[in-house]
Design a protein around this nucleic acid. Structure first.
Lengths: 219, 219
DNA sequence: GCATGTGAATAGATTCACAGCG
DNA sequence: CGCTGTGAATCTATTCACATGC
C-alpha cells in the first residue's frame, strides 16, 4: 500500500493513457484486466503499469488483475476529472474550430464554453455550441463563464499576449498549440504541442534509423 | 569536444525547441546568443542548453556565446532536416485539413504531398495544394509520391489499420493524432498526440495546485 | 572577465526479480 | 499457481560548479 506518496510526473503523463485503454477494454465488456494486457494496449511495459498504479493505492487483486470500472474511477479521481472542466478556445482558425468540434471532449471531462477570435468576420458565428466573441471581451467572458482551461490556437505572435490575459482572467491551465514558447507564472500549468516539433523529432529518429515510441511525455 | 556520443532522447526532443527559438532570434537580427538567453526563450535551464548543445559538438565561443546561423545549421543537420520530408495526411476531417493547411511546415522542413479520406464526398476535392484521394489508393499513391511521414487524423477505430497500410507502403515515421494507441514494427518511429490526454494531464496539476511546464517530452 | 563545456553529484524514471497474497 | 506490489538495481536525465579558453 503506497497511497500517500507523491506521484511522479512520468506516471501522471501515463495515467490518461491507461484511462483511454481502459475505456476501450470496458467497451469490450471485460470486467478485469491484467497489467500485462493493459500494458500492451497502452504501448508500455507491464512492470511500468504496476508501478504506476501502485502510486494510486493497491487496487488490484493478486492472481486476478484489476477491476476495470473501479480502476477507471480511481484514475479519474486522481486526475481531478470529477466534474467537467470549463474550456475556452482562443483563436478560431481551422485548428481552433477542429478542436472545438472534437466530440470526444465531454467523455474525457471537458466542456468547451467559450471561443475567441480577433477576426470581425468570425465574431458572432458559432463553432460547435458556442458563439465566437472578440478577444477584447475575453477577460469578462472568461470570468462569467468560469473558464478554467484555455486552449491557445492563435498565431505565434499573439500567443503570449492572450495567455497573459487568460491568466489574468483566472485561467489556471493552458494548452498551447501556437508554435512559440509561452511563459506563465508559478501556479499556472502549461503544456505545449507543436506539429512542427513533433515532425522534427521523428525526422531525427528516421535519420538515425532508430525506432521510437512515445506519447507526449511529462515535464 | 564530444561529437561522437549518442544524443539522449530528452535532448533530441529539445533540439527543435531551440531551433524554434533561434528562428525568432534570427528574425531579430541577433548574430550571437548566450545559453542563458536561449534557455529563457525556450523555457528551460541554461545548463541544460549547454549540455544539450555539447552533444552536437563545441559550437560556442567562450566569453561570447553561440553564432545563431551556424547553430541553426548544425541543429538542422542533426535532425536530418536537409531536404524536405514528404508528408501524407490520412484523414481529411477538420483536423486533417487544419494540419494540411498549416503554413509553417515548409519552413520546418516538411512538405505535404498527399491526403487521404474514405468519404466519397471529400475525394477529389483539395486541401492546400493536394487533392484528396481514397484510402484504397493509399499504398500506390504513397509509393508514387515517396511519402516518408504519415500524419494520422482518422477516428480511433481506423487508426491502427491505416497505420499498418502506411508502414506497408514504406512510411518510416508516423505522427498519430487519433485517440488510441497505435503500434508499429521496430524501425518505424511513432509519436502520439492526444488533445484529451494533454487536458487530463493539466487537470491533474490544476487539481494538485502544482505548476508544470512541458513540451511534449521524449520517449 | 565572461560564457562555454563538462566531469561529478544529484535527482528521477524504468526495469528487474521476487516476496506476498488471493 | 498467477498476478500484483514493491524494494533494489539499473539506467537516464538534470543540475551544479568550476576549469577552460577566447
Amino acid at each position: 500500500m503506497a497511497s500517500a506518496r507523491r506521484i511522479p510526473q512520468a506516471t501522471v503523463a501515463r495515467l490518461p493513457l491507461y484511462l483511454r485503454a481502459l475505456d476501450e477494454i470496458a467497451a469490450e465488456r471485460e470486467a478485469t484486466i491484467s497489467s500485462e494486457t493493459l500494458a500492451a494496449r497502452a504501448g508500455v511495459n507491464a512492470a511500468q503499469v504496476r508501478k504506476d498504479l501502485s502510486y494510486l493505492g493497491s487496487y488490484g487483486t493478486r492472481g486476478v488483475g484489476y477491476d476495470v470500472a473501479y480502476l477507471v474511477m480511481q484514475i479519474n479521481r486522481q486526475l481531478g476529472l470529477g466534474e467537467a472542466h470549463r474550456v475556452g478556445i482562443i483563436g478560431a482558425g481551422r485548428l481552433g474550430q477542429a478542436l472545438a468540434g472534437y466530440g470526444g471532449l465531454p467523455a474525457r471531462g471537458f466542456q468547451v464554453v467559450a471561443a475567441f477570435d480577433n477576426d470581425p468576420a468570425k465574431v458572432g458565428t458559432s463553432i460547435g455550441s458556442v458563439t465566437i466573441t472578440s478577444v477584447a471581451t475575453m477577460p469578462s467572458v472568461m470570468r462569467d463563464e468560469r473558464v478554467a482551461v484555455a486552449i491557445v490556437t492563435t498565431p505565434a505572435s499573439s500567443a503570449q499576449g492572450v495567455a497573459d490575459l487568460a491568466v489574468e482572467a483566472g485561467v489556471r491551465s493552458i494548452l498551447n498549440f501556437a508554435p512559440t514558447t509561452v511563459c506563465v507564472p508559478r501556479g499556472v500549468a502549461i503544456r505545449q504541442v507543436d506539429l512542427g516539433i513533433e515532425l522534427q523529432i521523428l525526422s531525427f529518429y528516421q535519420e538515425h534509423q532508430i525506432g521510437v515510441s512515445a506519447v507526449a511525455p511529462a515535464g
